[in-house]
């Protein structure tokens, strides 16, 4: 589990750190951490729907922000709980791009142990960084 929840940052909300050897791994970890705030057991999310995803932004920091916001959007707008099937992240000529596929299923309180809605990703202590070991991010989600 390449993420951990942080207790000291957000009293009323959910904060986590996510990491990976590559930007892609870190993006997947952050997506899992975000979904895990809402769903207690991610293994209960089965693959009944697939969804392509393509985003671009000015930098990696904003790209991750928009990526996580997409997951929140689909949860409300399409009632979909989503995980990453595969994705590719790259920065070229000052533009950060993400392309890939998400999978998941319609949320079902009988099947999924739903904990709490994430309302938004915040910029509180928000950070995306390339380190010697790879990539890491700190995210505080408003619940």
């Amino acid at each position: 589990m390449p993420y951990k929840y942080l207790e000291e940052i957000a009293m009323a909300d959910a904060a986590f750190e996510a990491w990976g050897a590559t930007a892609e791994e870190m993006f997947v970890a952050a997506a899992e951490a975000l979904m895990n705030v809402m769903v207690a057991d991610l293994e209960t999310i089965h693959q009944t729907a697939k969804l392509p995803i393509r985003l671009q932004s000015e930098d990696m920091e904003m790209l991750l922000y928009e990526f996580l916001q997409e997951l929140i959007f689909y949860k409300d707008a399409r009632q979909l709980l989503l995980r990453v099937h595969h994705l590719q992240v790259e920065t070229q000529k000052g533009i950060a791009r993400l392309e890939g596929e998400l999978y998941g299923e319609t949320l079902n309180p009988q099947k999924h142990d739903l904990v709490v809605d994430v309302k938004a990703v915040t910029f509180h202590r928000y950070r995306v960084e390339q380190t010697e070991k790879g990539w890491e991010a700190t995210v505080v989600a408003d619940v």
Partner: peptide
């Protein structure tokens, strides 16, 4: 205001920055 209000806030927060 549920997801609607959350999205309005997120949209404008990002654009204000």
């Amino acid at each position: 205001s549920r997801g609607f209000g959350h999205q309005v806030a997120s949209d404008y927060l990002a654009s204000f920055l």
